[in-house]
């Protein structure tokens, strides 16, 4: 029995990763139903309760409460929703913009290529976190601003990778034949080349989720991401920082959640890359 489980795991190492991600994502989606308490309104008489399995903990608050008596588990669940929303939005918007620019730069070459690639250079030379801080302070801090900032900072990787792929794809026979058949440039780009770079974009996006979550957590930690009292894992770590000596669970639990999420996304990305296209090992 154990041997069969082991050989199954060896063949499909991605299964436990997906299970873990589902454990994180499903409560996030149904947060309103699943969360035992309100994530923002606490009960001050229950403040700083430790997790239930330690001395003084109560099972009504399985992961304990913070100094305003808010239930940590509920805040974790809503925080997962925040993280999922930010990463999904940032990936869709950033991935689309970056891929589009990469397609144009690679396909049209010449000025398109020069201008877009120099923009990529500029983007990659800027200290992202400082720029993000400035932008967040300029605009109202909030989910939308955080998404916009993260997108603005991460599109360039897609552009660079997609362009490199397009450069080799456009020399291939099927592109030349499409052109002979009278297809327009835009049709060739979107109908013939785009499907061939799609795998790359998916793999890159998966590998980027970890970065997005870490960046969002860093910004929230610095007070420039998701504004309190909204639940976000980075905010929770920041709030728990001063209580690390007396109430370790405030910071440790959200940190572990970030670690598990980023780890499983990175493992999933690695697996997808090997599965879809082993040539991408260098990503």
């Amino acid at each position: 029995m154990l041997g069969r489980a082991w050989s199954f795991l060896r063949r499909y190492p991605v299964v436990p990763v997906v299970v873990l991600l589902l454990i994180l994502v499903i409560p996030a989606v149904f947060a309103d139903v699943v969360a035992p308490h309100d994530p923002i309104d606490g009960d001050l008489s229950d403040r700083l309760l430790p997790p239930a399995w330690t001395d003084g903990g109560e099972w009504s608050h399985p992961l304990g409460t913070d100094r305003q008596g808010r239930d940590i588990l509920s805040r974790m669940i809503f925080g997962a929703r925040t993280a999922a929303l930010v990463s999904l939005a940032a990936l869709v918007v950033g991935g689309s913009i970056g891929s589009l620019l990469g397609l144009f730069a690679g396909y049209f070459g010449r000025w398109w290529d020069h201008v877009i690639m120099r923009l990529v250079d500029v983007n990659l030379s800027l200290p992202l976190v400082l720029l993000a801080l400035v932008l967040v302070v300029l605009f109202e801090p909030g989910t939308a601003t955080t998404v916009a900032v993260v997108t603005l900072l991460l599109w360039s990787r897609y552009a660079r990778q997609v362009r490199a792929e397009v450069l080799s794809l456009k020399e291939m026979d099927f592109v030349a034949r499409a052109r002979v058949a009278g297809a327009s440039d835009l049709r060739i780009i979107f109908r013939h080349i785009l499907p061939n770079v799609f795998n790359t974009v998916i793999v890159l996006a998966t590998l980027q989720v970890g970065n997005v979550i870490l960046l969002e957590a860093s910004l929230s930690f610095l007070g420039a991401g998701i504004p309190p009292p909204d639940p976000a894992w980075g905010v929770m770590i920041a709030e728990g920082r001063d209580f690390i000596v007396t109430s370790w669970w405030l910071s440790v639990i959200p940190g572990l959640a970030i670690m598990l999420t980023v780890l499983s996304m990175n493992l999933l990305g690695d697996w997808l890359r090997d599965y879809l296209d082993p040539r991408l090992r260098q990503l």
């Binding site: 970890g210 860093s218 930690f221 980075g234 690390i244 910071s251 440790v252 980023v262």
Partner: peptide, 22 residues
């Protein structure tokens, strides 16, 4: 190594303080 890549550095910092300093 993979675990390290998944940790937010600022959180690792807090935990290190908790363990090694406090």
């Amino acid at each position: 190594a993979l675990l390290g890549q998944s940790l937010p550095p600022f959180w690792l910092g807090i935990v290190l303080i908790w363990i090694f300093s406090v």
